[in-house]
Amino acid sequence: MTARGKYETRLDPALWTYIDAVNAWYPPEITGLPIDKQRAVYDRMSQAFHQGRPAGVKASDGLIAAAGRDIPVRRYQRAGKAAKAMVVYYHGGGFILGGLESHDDICAELCDGTGFDVLS
């Protein structure tokens, strides 16, 4: 059995291509590095994978005031169209990796595909 184990035939080949690309940029052993080094690698990977925003999706940055520090947020809206709902997007990363830039295109795609505003 391959390193992919029982999942070898259960996942689409295109998904394996993506998983392999992620592992090439951010291999599992990287978790042994200090957090600042992990962040730097993750940020470079996210930048390399960024697909851009769909046409017609605009984004604006803001801050939410919180005790001790402000929280940066980004709102995605489809130009000229009122949304019927808003998605609040919390990216993964365990409060260690990722941020507004790393998940920018994903949030823009969610906005475009659903027609809802997205707050990241």
Rank of each mutant, 00 (worst) to 15 (best):
I19L: 15
G99I: 08
G92N: 06
T114R: 03
A66Y: 11
M45S: 00
R10C: 09
P54A: 03
E109C: 13
G98E: 06
A59L: 03
Q38C: 10
D104Y: 09
K6R: 13
G68H: 02
D20G: 04
D36G: 02
G113K: 15
P34Y: 06
G5K: 04
L11R: 04
L33F: 11
G68A: 00
S102L: 07
L63R: 14
A79W: 08
L97W: 02
D36R: 12
N23E: 15
P34E: 02
G68Y: 07
L63G: 01
K6I: 14
K84D: 13
D61K: 10
D36S: 09
A65M: 08
E8L: 14
V118S: 01
T114P: 05
I96S: 10
G68M: 00
T31G: 13
G68P: 06
R78K: 12
G62C: 09
R75G: 00
V118G: 03
Y89F: 15
L63P: 01
I19M: 05
L11P: 05
P28I: 06
Y18H: 13
D61L: 10
D112K: 15
L110A: 07
G5L: 12
Q77P: 01
I71G: 04
G80W: 04
G99T: 08
C111T: 05
V22F: 09
Q77M: 07
E101I: 10
A14M: 05
A48K: 02
R39P: 05
D105Y: 04
G93W: 04
F116G: 00
V87E: 04
A55N: 09
G92F: 00
D117Y: 02
D20F: 01
I106V: 15
Y76W: 02
G113Y: 08
M86V: 14
N23Y: 12
V57G: 06
A67S: 12
G56R: 03
T31D: 13
V41F: 02
P27H: 03
A85Q: 09
R10W: 11
T31Y: 13
L11V: 05
H91T: 03
Y26R: 02
A66P: 01
D20A: 07
A67G: 09
Y90T: 06
A65G: 11
T114A: 05
G92Y: 09
D105M: 03
T2H: 13
F116P: 05
Y89L: 06
I71R: 01
R75A: 05
E8V: 14
L97E: 06
Y7R: 10
I19D: 03
K37P: 03
K6C: 11
D112A: 15
A3W: 12
A40S: 03
E101C: 07
Y42H: 14
G80R: 06
M1K: 13
L11F: 15
G99F: 10
K58G: 10
L97V: 06
T17M: 06
S120Q: 15
S120C: 14
A14K: 09
F49D: 04
G80A: 00
D12T: 01
A108L: 13
K84L: 10
Q38H: 07
G62H: 07
V57W: 05
G98F: 00
Y26F: 15
S46Y: 07
S46D: 01
L110Y: 13
R75C: 09
G115F: 08
L110K: 10
